[in-house]
Amino acid sequence: MGIIFLIIIGAAAGFLATRIMGLEMDIITTVVIGIAGALIGGLVLRMLLAVMGMMAGLVGAVLGALVLIWLWQLYLKR
């Protein structure tokens, strides 16, 4: 159930991350980056900040998506 929750949150996190970074991306890329960011950031932050519970998952999802978008812009979109 936790992974499914992170995937759903990841889709929203990808949308938020692209808006925060001022990018216009297609929906598939946005969702994939958000899901990957949610899985990476959410799991890491949940391990480190278990006290915060689900809020750590959302914060981690957005931060993970932001990092992935930054890396994507830096290395893949030249």
Rank of each mutant, 00 (worst) to 15 (best):
G22L: 10
Q73H: 07
L49E: 13
R19S: 04
T18H: 13
L48T: 10
G60D: 11
G2I: 09
G34Q: 08
G41A: 03
L45V: 06
G42H: 09
G2M: 11
M52I: 08
G53D: 10
A56M: 02
M52Y: 14
I20R: 12
A61F: 10
G60M: 14
M25K: 11
G10M: 02
V62S: 08
I27E: 01
M54D: 13
M21S: 12
I3H: 11
I27M: 03
G34I: 03
A36I: 13
E24N: 00
M52N: 05
R78H: 15
F5R: 08
I35V: 14
A56E: 11
M21T: 09
R46V: 02
K77P: 03
R19F: 03
I69S: 01
M25A: 03
L6T: 10
A13G: 03
A50G: 13
V62H: 07
D26H: 06
G10E: 09
G64D: 04
A12N: 01
L48D: 05
G22Q: 00
I20D: 07
I20C: 04
I33P: 00
L74H: 14
V32H: 02
V51I: 08
M47F: 15
W70I: 14
W72R: 04
I3N: 07
L16E: 12
D26P: 04
V67F: 10
V31K: 00
G14C: 01
L71E: 00
L66P: 06
A50Q: 11
L49Y: 15
A11E: 07
L45Y: 10
L74P: 04
G22F: 14
I4M: 13
F15P: 00
I9D: 04
R46D: 11
G53V: 03
G22D: 02
V62F: 08
E24I: 00
I8H: 05
I27N: 01
V62K: 06
G37K: 00
D26V: 01
L48K: 10
E24K: 02
R78I: 00
I40E: 06
K77V: 13
M52V: 09
M25P: 00
V59G: 10
V67W: 05
M55E: 15
M47H: 14
I40H: 07
G14Q: 01
M25Q: 04
L76P: 01
L66G: 04
I7P: 07
V32D: 02
I69R: 03
G64M: 02
G37N: 03
V31G: 04
V62D: 05
R46S: 14
G42P: 03
I69H: 02
I3L: 14
Q73L: 10
W70Y: 14
W70C: 07
A17Q: 05
V31L: 11
